[in-house]
Structure formats: C-alpha cells, structure tokens
Amino acid sequence: MENLSAKYGKTLNLDKLTSYCPGCGHGVVTRLVAEAIEELGIMERTIAIVGIGCGGFSHHYMDIDAIEATHGRAPSFALGYKLAMPENIVFTYAGDGDTCAIGLGDLLHAANKGMPITTIMVNNTVFGMTGGQMSPTTLVGQVTATTAKGRDTALQGYPLLVPEMMRSMEGVKFLARESVATPKAIRKAKRSIRKAFECQVRGLGYSFVEVVVPCPTGLKMRVRDSYARCANEMTDYFKPQVFRDETEQVDVA
C-alpha cells in the first residue's frame, strides 16, 4: 500500500483503517485537526484528550500521545494536564453528548478559567456511538431513538447553543462554530481550527470550536441527504460564525 502518511505529513496516520462509518463528519474534523497540528509544527508536544463516543477514536489516526478520558471530563483532564505541563499543547476532542450533556459543567468552567487549552466539539445532534439517542443539540422535532415523536420543547427544551454560552467569558480568546457541510465550509472550518490551536500556542487563553457535522448512521440517512441536512436545517439553527478572535493581538506566551 502507498505510504499516505509520507505524502500528507507525519501527524495524520492515513495508513490506519478508520472506525468511522462512511460519510461520518468525524473523519473530516479529525483530518482538519491533524492538519492544524502538522502546519503549526507542534506534533511532538501535542496531546489529545478525547471523550467517550465515536470521536474517542480520533486519536488513533494521529501519531500523537493521547488520553481517553472519562465521559464528559476531558476539559478537566486537560486543565490538570496543562497545569502540570504548560509547555505542551493540549486539546480535547469529543461529540456533542460528551461535551455538552454529561460534560457541560466541566466545559464551561474550563472555558471560564481561561487557561490556554483547546476544545473541539463535534456536533452531530445525536449520541452517535450509543445508537442515535437525543443529545442536548438535537433539533426541535428531530426524531431520534429516544424522541420517537421528535424533540418536544415542553419536555426537552431547545437545542443548546454552546459557544453562545461562552460569549461573555473574558478568558475565551478564540470562539467559533463551523460546519463540514460543503467544501467551502470545510475550508472555513480548517481556518478556525488552526486559529484555535494557534491561540494556545501563543498562550492567549482558552479556544473553542464547535463543528456541525452529519452522522448518517445515527440519523438513519443516506450520506448525501445527511450532508444536505447539515447544510440546511442544522446550520440554520447552529449558525457558523467566528464569535471572537483575539489571535491577532500581540504575543503573551
């Protein structure tokens, strides 16, 4: 087999078969993260702290040290790690369930502490790994394994807008929501993910990127339809935008 790693850089391990379903958005985001690490030249000092869920496999496709944290706690793991080894670059990578259901408390306090760590939240509006149950970001009316008649706002509230919750936090220095719905959106997502890492490399403070992606399996959709949904219903509600970008300011690291 052709040595793809040699062609695409050292961080991304393309020689490994991925565990992601065909069309899964994690595949795209994993690659964007690996490219950001590669381009910034920080591979040897970058540590992935991944959550529980399909995104937990992401580290297998990057030749970097990795820690599979307990469910939802990756941001707290990352804080402890960064305190003990500030010279290393630490990022968390997990789905919406891990990041904003069980892990919302850890996440918001980590963001509010403002220490230079990076969080990548991959939002596919369902719990992928456990079989497509409702997550906090499930859209109103969306049918899932646990919302047979669609998400009912009287009982389950409205989809959680996570970066919006961090807008008032001074310690958050890069804050964005992106998607992988189209090639153009992917290029934008790539820029934001790179900036989020750069923010940490320069010691500016906390950085966060939510990436809106399809989960064809959990949604029980064809890949093509799941991307159309991502480009329409999903991003109509979860509007891609850069909320804050302080990476332009002078170095403090």
Binding site: I47, G80, H109
Partner: peptide, 15 residues
C-alpha cells in the same frame, strides 16, 4: 468530579 478528573489529567504527565 472535576477535581479528580484534573488530578487524573495531571497524573498522566508522570508528575
């Protein structure tokens, strides 16, 4: 919960 998770994260460094 966060205490023990941060503890685990820091312990990963060997310190």
């Amino acid at each position: 919960l966060a205490v023990s998770s941060a503890l685990a994260g820091a312990a990963c460094t060997g310190k």
